[in-house]
Design a protein around this nucleic acid. Structure first.
Lengths: 145, 145
DNA sequence: CTCTAAAATGACCCCGGGGTCAACTTTATT
DNA sequence: AATAAAGTTGACCCCGGGGTCATTTTAGAG
């Protein structure tokens, strides 16, 4: 299957559910409910987002989650890097070990052209774009297709 | 990680290792050695390739494997379908359940544009293109990058 | 008919991603 | 200090993809 990990998708939804200004805290339980993410699993994702400096968690009473910077300054690529890792697209499409720039497989050249375009879209699409989207009534459900 | 499955990559290598005319049989053990594919695992891949009508296996003495049709008439997309399945790219890049054409996520439009291009490249790249490539001295190794 | 070289088959193991649980730590309030 | 509300942490389970093994089936040759 050609797609990013589910965790990354969750990460995007989580960030999109927070105050785009990065000011107010919002309860994790709240986010969990809204984005339809299993609550305990959410924490794992939060950990990675915090490691990557995209998110701040405040413990204790009146604590919660908030963006580390404004939503329009966080890109989807930031999230991909934080969760799927920096090497999310190191391999070419066929993923043949031994395939590289110096020794390209038949689809390598094509992939070398496509990959930067995908990366660019992820780079230039920010979290608040997703926010607009979820605000428009979209809901993450199991049977969407 | 954004890539096709390893099995699909193996499938491509296997087909590329056979007689492009689809005439002569070649021993599976032979293919296994050349393509650096664990021999027992090879059989699983063979099964799917045969189901999909891309490959013929002949048992017994002097048996072996051969293409069901000429190499230039087998595309990478055929292999992807045979092994990863028809739905290898049903989901959009983020893979959000609930994201669809009628209710697109923010990267959906972009992905709808890219996906056909990927499919087209896979469709128009045939097995013998890969053959040329492996013949040129490329070898599947664990530490290629 | 039997021996043997080949592919095919089914059961099994391993590991990482996704998901769950129960404890723990922090901190504002009283 | 005690408490309650919050996030955090580590251990655990489940499942599918990748990979291995032993066995079975097939077909040519003597």
């Amino acid at each position: 299957m050609v797609s990013l990990s589910r965790s990354t998708a969750y990460g995007v939804l989580v960030l999109a559910a927070l105050d785009p200004q990065g000011q107010e805290y919002r309860a994790a339980a709240d986010v969990s409910a809204e984005a339809n993410i299993p609550r305990p699993y959410l924490s794992k994702i939060l950990a990675r987002l915090q490691e990557a400096g995209l998110l701040e968690g405040k413990r204790g009473r009146d604590g919660g989650l908030r963006l580390a910077r404004e939503a329009h300054r966080i890109s989807l690529l930031d999230v991909v890097h934080a969760i799927d890792g920096e090497d999310w697209a190191d391999q070419c499409l066929l993923g043949l070990p031994g395939c590289s720039g110096s020794c390209p497989c038949p689809v390598h050249a094509f992939w070398s052209g496509i990959k930067p375009r995908i990366e660019e879209v992820l780079q230039t699409t920010s979290i608040d774009r997703v926010r607009d989207f979820t605000d428009a009534g979209w809901k993450m459900t199991a049977s969407g297709d």
